[in-house]
Simulated scan of single mutants.
Amino acid sequence: MNPIRVLLVDDSAVVRQVLTEQLARDPAITVIAAVADPLFAMARMQKEWPDVIILDIEMPRMDGLTFLRKIMDERPTPVVICSTLTEKGATTTLEALAAGAVSIVTKPKLGLKRFMEEASADLATAVKAAAQANLRRLRIGAPPGDAVRRDSTPAMKLSADAVLAPGGSCALQQTTERIVAIGASTGGTQALEHVLTALPSGCPGVAVVQHMPEKFTRAFAERLNRLCRIEVREARHGERLLPGYALIAPGGKHMMLKRSGAYYCVDVIDGPVVNRHRPSVDVLFRSAAKYAGANALGIIMTGMGDDGARGLREMRDAGASTIAQDEATCVVFGMPKEAVRLGGAQRVLPLSGLPRAILEWAAGAK
């Protein structure tokens, strides 16, 4: 296979130098150019069009958001946003995701060179995920989601065992409280928007893990709350999961479902990264299997990797209903594909069918 051709657009000379050096170490990637702003990028792209663009947001002459929209109008191309980890940067980056970017790479204001060197493996993973993105989905405006985490990749890939022991069901046999657990990654922000905006205010409580870094999840929840009929918020430790509410797991924290009497609440905790993510979908799904059982619906959506696949199987084994998003409507058919392979998904549905499936399940349809 030919290496993935990457164009790097960032006004920081340090970022351009370090990223070029680090990405060049991966034989599957080649950096065809590293330029200081979008105008230089457009001139370079006239000679050779890249497979993936790594794009800063705040730049001179033309900002990254304007450039991104121009690309998506003219020739949709996978774009990884290189964003500063700030509240302001989070809001702007969400606009970029809505405009068609595939994922986020966060960078600090201080210690930039060292951070980029330490995060090189994650950056290469983000580029490879972007290169696999379903461009047809990008064209119709159903992309973005995954973000490169800020933790160093552990030597060993940990499972949900590192946070919550398997088995030992604590679920009630019957309860009027039912919950929906959703996990998503690359492509998830727009896919979740499609699902959550379609739900009525009386729907079951929804717990969501979307792979995103800290600060970004709060801005994401606030944006969804403005668009949805249900209440959407970033989850707080001990918060009850009420009907008509969706709780988004905070970036950098795991979120687990717990039972309190006949009701459900969430624990928001620290802990090791699981499947190289924090929050992890597997952690949420295992807790749903353990504490909700047949009172839960699990949905695994677009994303690269396998986080959530084993957890969805555990939910199914515990009596929960389970669904995987289909390949045609995924930006990256990684997580749902693995869930199907493991036998975790009872049904495979397109994105457009997920809201109705939730409401039918809530009404008791099988």
Rank of each mutant, 00 (worst) to 15 (best):
R286N: 08
V283E: 07
T322K: 00
L68N: 05
L241C: 11
A121H: 00
T93C: 11
M59G: 07
L68Q: 12
D326V: 07
V209D: 04
D267F: 04
A129C: 03
R16Q: 05
T30H: 11
Q173K: 11
V195Q: 06
E21L: 09
S321C: 05
N2P: 10
D306Y: 13
D37M: 09
A219S: 15
G167N: 10
A121G: 01
A221H: 10
D122L: 07
R356M: 09
L192Y: 11
M315A: 04
C170E: 06
M304K: 10
D10G: 03
L158R: 15
D10N: 15
I71W: 09
K337W: 14
C265T: 06
R149L: 13
D26C: 00
R114S: 05
A294R: 14
L8V: 09
E360M: 01
K113V: 01
E117V: 09
A24M: 04
G319W: 10
C228S: 08
S260Q: 14
A184L: 09
A155P: 09
P213L: 01
K215N: 10
L158H: 03
K107W: 01
A133F: 02
L55D: 01
S201A: 15
S169C: 02
P355A: 04
S152M: 13
T329M: 04
M42Y: 05
V340I: 15
T91K: 14
C330S: 15
K366H: 10
I57C: 07
P272S: 01
R149A: 15
A90F: 04
M59V: 02
L123V: 00
K128R: 13
P38T: 12
I140A: 10
G183M: 08
V31N: 07
R233M: 07
S103M: 02
H254D: 12
L23D: 02
R16M: 09
Y263N: 14
P27K: 05
L192S: 11
T84L: 00
